[in-house]
Design a binder for these strands. Structure first.
Lengths: 156, 156
DNA sequence: ATTGAAATATGTTCGTA
DNA sequence: TACGAACATATTTCAAT
């Protein structure tokens, strides 16, 4: 069910439903139904349509890492010797649990990753013992996040 | 309920419960109960404890932005004239819906942001019309994510 | 697409161990 | 902590519009 511009069409009611569930995935459908004034069955049907379209990728519990002692987040730009080593480097990065994101990027680096560590010492360990030891990694540039001010999903 | 190292203690059962819900926030508690072999009431009680500890920050529906036509993700390093302009710049960034993350960082830039746009043209528009026009922004460096290979939460 | 109602499943509380 | 039972809600399906 795709439109001309290769994107799914959703109407105002779909948006309202999604906005509730993007805030709280466990919000009861019937509660949303009461808020926006249509039946629970209608919402149920719309959600099935949205899931089928692929727009809803799933749902997640959000964990607060600080409560587990993880207080140091950083972005690390990685220079690789040869482009050939990229897929192997990503495989190695996947095995490092502190690596939460990994992007091939334009610009100076081959790869940009986001890591979450307990503290600076832990970060240093991940850099020196885990990342620098990956075959093909020649150099890294680290940017520690002193404070995350915005963290949100796409606005619909 | 914090331990000596200022982090919450969770046991193996807590971890199992959380792992299920981090994958699928709407997974029924009773289903999880059947999987791990304790009663639904016990899980309910543990979840209340985990929420009270602050470890569970909430839950979210995950939207696939590609289905809405958003295919260009980029990181942008922003140079600010004076540190003084930082909070004002963040306020201005909050008003740009394409900005999904914003970090104060160590290193070259004052601020690192993540943006999600429909295409390169849209990204260029956000750069030139929205970001560059913010008071105090002197220069930006853009890194387009050609491909995101890893995207996950903290592993517990 | 939407509805109400019925059937099924789940969430929640409580007394007890 | 954990349990089971009882009660309150929610999800899901379906015939009808």
């Amino acid at each position: 069910m795709k439109s001309d511009d290769n994107s799914v069409k959703i109407d105002g009611i779909d948006k309202k439903i999604l906005r509730y569930l993007m805030e709280d995935a466990r919000k009861p459908i019937l509660e949303i139904a009461r808020h926006i004034g249509i039946s629970g069955a209608a919402i149920h049907q719309r959600l099935r349509k949205l899931e089928k379209s692929g727009l809803i990728a799933g749902s997640k519990f959000v964990i607060n890492p600080k409560v587990l002692g993880y207080t140091t987040m950083a972005y690390i730009g990685i220079f690789l010797d040869k482009a050939m080593s990229n897929p192997m480097a990503v495989k190695a990065l996947e095995k490092i649990p502190e690596v939460l994101e990994c992007h091939y990027t334009t610009g100076d680096w081959s790869i940009l990753i986001k890591v979450l560590c307990k503290d600076n010492e832990h970060l240093m360990h991940v850099l020196n013992k885990d990342i620098q030891q990956i075959e093909g990694v020649s150099r890294t540039e680290t940017f520690i996040s002193l404070n995350q001010q915005i963290d949100r999903q796409i606005s619909i």
